[in-house]
Nucleic acid binder design. Structure first.
Lengths: 215, 215
DNA sequence: CCAGGCAAGATTGGATACAATCTTCATATG
DNA sequence: CATATGAAGATTGTATCCAATCTTGCCTGG
């Protein structure tokens, strides 16, 4: 025990999981009283965590009516991915020339994690490691605000992205792309890196859009 | 009277003003108890408003130590403006071809407001009208998430930008640029619009960076 | 003189209680 | 039958109170 962190931080992490896992379904109202007690806290830290998520667009807020899990339309999805491409292209453009050999070794280490997780069909481990891989690359840009914005865009679609990693074919494809990406990074080929990242995004946008269209 | 809004919204607006006007100085701690009572509310709505500002990067938060008004370094400023250019270029690229004649009339109306405010040396009116002008343009993109991100970047430098409009020479320059911009919009010249917006940004970044360097 | 530690005060974090608002549903009314 | 009304219940919004943590400054011991 004795997590020296605050309850709002704990609650925020929990909420992200609940949303990303779909336990809290898109469109659903977040009833503060029941959720707070189910998390073992009062409504105060829960409300503060919800305000953070509101700022990230993960939930919407209507005064006196409460918070609702954000429900992405196809238009929203397209917009999020367009914004991602603007921001990620920049992060790569700036970051790749700054990559040290150690950075690339580190990226390869993470890549092993991704592949190990893929091997054992552990979807949530794949998701986590994949995220680490891409953000290790983005962070090479040394632009913390930019990286934070990219994170927000990723989070916005987390509730839908899980399905992508469920299919083994997608996993193989992803691993292939990652390896090609590392090759491009090693030769510090900015344009190729950007193109590969773009292709990577396009794959998931098409899959996620089908999930959204479904219901 | 009977503003049916919530206290947290009111407080949020007040806080923005306090920060933009420099009443709350960069780096300064936000003491919740005194600020809350000076605003006539309890700490709860204040804390929720502060969470929103934290998400926008207007204040920083350290658990058990509190909120501090964000203090931009030169590197932060450069990053904010680089991000702005990525996002604003896109908004213009998408929005300009969609502009209706009515939209442009509306923009010219706002432009009159800006010039009237400039004439009467009303710095805060200039700031407000100038913002309306640019965001009316950005909103033509029909990309609400993109517009919101741009807003955040503007807010991040609001505490410093006031000085730009204080000098009459800058005001003349700005009006000139605005008029040229409207001409470019009328001919739906995307590239020229982007270039003009970029020049506009460059002016203020150089001025603001001097303000930051000073202390 | 300086480093470390300890106690008092200040400040933030969170739980509870109550007020304000919204939602629902039964009832009345045209 | 459709619509308005209004009261009860549900839910959110905020104030207050107490607990937890941090800061400050004094004191001690070296």
């Amino acid at each position: 025990m004795s997590e020296s962190v605050t309850a709002q931080e704990t609650v925020l992490r929990e909420l992200r999981l609940l949303i990303a896992s779909g336990t809290l379904e898109p469109g659903q109202q977040v009833v503060q009283d029941s959720l707070a007690s189910s998390l073992g806290v009062s409504r105060v830290p829960l409300r503060e965590a919800l305000k953070v998520l509101e700022g990230e667009g993960q939930v919407t807020y209507h005064p006196h009516r409460g918070y609702f899990v954000a429900d992405l339309s196809i238009e929203d999805l397209v917009e999020v991915y367009r914004i991602r491409s603007l921001l990620e292209d920049e992060a790569i453009r700036v970051g790749v020339p700054l990559l040290t050999d150690e950075d690339i070794e580190y990226l390869e280490d993470i890549l092993h994690d991704v592949e190990a997780a893929a091997q054992s069909q552990d979807v949530s481990a794949v998701t986590a490691a994949n995220r680490r891989f891409h953000f290790a690359l983005f962070e090479a840009s040394n632009m913390p605000r930019l990286v934070r914005l990219i994170k927000n865009q990723w989070d916005a679609t987390d509730a839908y992205r899980g399905v992508y990693f469920a299919a083994p074919a997608n996993l193989d494809h992803m691993n292939q792309e990652h390896r090609t990406m590392v090759q491009a990074l090693k030769s510090r080929d900015v344009e190729k890196s950007i193109a590969l990242q773009a292709a990577h995004r396009e794959n998931s946008v098409s899959v996620v859009s089908q999930v959204i269209k479904k219901p």
